[in-house]
Design a protein around this nucleic acid. Structure first.
Lengths: 212, 212
DNA sequence: TGCAATTTACCCCAAATGATGTATTATGAA
DNA sequence: TTCATAATACATCATTTGGGGTAAATTGCA
């Protein structure tokens, strides 16, 4: 029984490399490759039915997380393995939350990739060893819910943060203690798995649709 | 006459993919691959004499720019082709200054890569067509920058800041003192009349078209 | 009504940033 | 070659942020 794949990555060289690596493998068949989410959707509409899609997370037009979320409802039978450079931990959590079945770093080797494909093909999950720890920690801390599950106050403070307000400024504006603001700010950090305000602002802009 | 290569990239999957793509080509021989600068140096000390090294720019231990600069004096007969994600414009400029003979984006395809190898093997230069566009854009931005007279270093640091890097992280990445980074950052503040990093990031996104 | 979640407020301490300087070494253009 | 600009590096000191807590009052909803 062969596992049928579609590969998705905006870096063509990487895509071709991956194709070259995998196409020699027994039990694996590359149906097609796509450079972006739109190409991927076209392939599926053309009737391709892969078992697994291996997708980069960070892509310009439609990123892996968006795609994964969409697939969860539109193509629930197709599993997704996420590929990443890993320079941002929170990506891991978001991707898994979005419904990815596997998570691999680009620092991994062919062997690990094939293992991941086989695991996921069997309906199991595969997490790059590096991430197991991160995810474990996340779960045990009961920080399972992310993103949209900020409380009203937290969201308000995040909005002010995005506008460049300091804790003290917010405290004055909201007639609260600066300690309170700090508590909220740090709770937001924890919930989102982000450890500085700049990353927080960018996350808010990208995912929470908080702008100005 | 075959062109002998060593490949250098910290992302093993990419490295293996590249190897897989190129090793089938006539006229090209892969002598070895290396995951970081140290491995590369060891290979050379062991007597490998490649014509060309294809190297990623961004790497943790010793980045492509450092390597290229070093090779210019220590192994002047070896040409270097730089590979990049091109998520940071200023890398292009730096790499060019450092003395790379070729410049390819990872969005390129196999055909372009091989063309680049052949060009460089013949002693010519090869620049990815995208590079031309980026370079053009970069130059015009530099000239048109009336409201935003940031120097090239300042712009580079602002780009990193937008990506959420701290002063210390930038210092490591750019091989500079953290004091230097701070000086630049504070000079940017003054020039733009902005008093904190978050406002700076938003200004950069809005007015300077610096994103990710 | 009762209990969980939220909001508020504080502690300590480390690290990073912001403000204001000085100063030396490249570098590039006139 | 000179001279301005850019890039580098550091000092000092105040403020802000980040990470780890604790704990009260309030709110909302089952």
């Amino acid at each position: 029984m062969t596992t049928q794949l579609i590969l998705l990555d905006d870096h063509v060289l990487f895509l071709e490399g991956l194709n070259s690596i995998l196409s020699g493998e027994i039990g694996i068949e590359i149906l097609a490759t796509a450079k972006n989410g739109l190409e991927l959707l076209q392939l599926l509409e053309q009737g391709h039915k892969p078992d697994i899609i291996i997708s980069d997370i960070r892509m310009p037009i439609m990123d892996g997380i968006v795609i994964t979320k969409m697939f969860k409802t539109k193509y629930p039978s197709i599993s997704i393995i996420a590929l990443t450079m890993l320079d941002q931990e929170s990506d891991v959590i978001e991707m898994l939350d979005a419904g990815a079945k596997g998570y691999i770093v680009k620092n991994a080797d062919k062997k690990e990739l094939i293992e991941a494909i086989n695991m996921v093909a069997q309906g199991k999950y595969y997490l790059s060893p590096r991430f197991a720890a991160i995810y474990e920690e996340w779960v045990t801390k009961k920080q399972v819910s992310i993103g949209t599950q900020l409380t009203r106050r937290e969201r308000q403070i995040l909005e002010l943060l995005v506008r460049g307000k300091s804790s003290l400024q917010m405290a004055k504006q909201l007639h609260l203690s600066r300690f309170t603001i700090d508590t909220h700010r740090k709770n937001i950090h924890k919930k989102l798995g982000i450890r500085n305000n700049i990353a927080l602002v960018r996350h808010a802009q990208k995912w929470l649709d908080i702008r100005e």
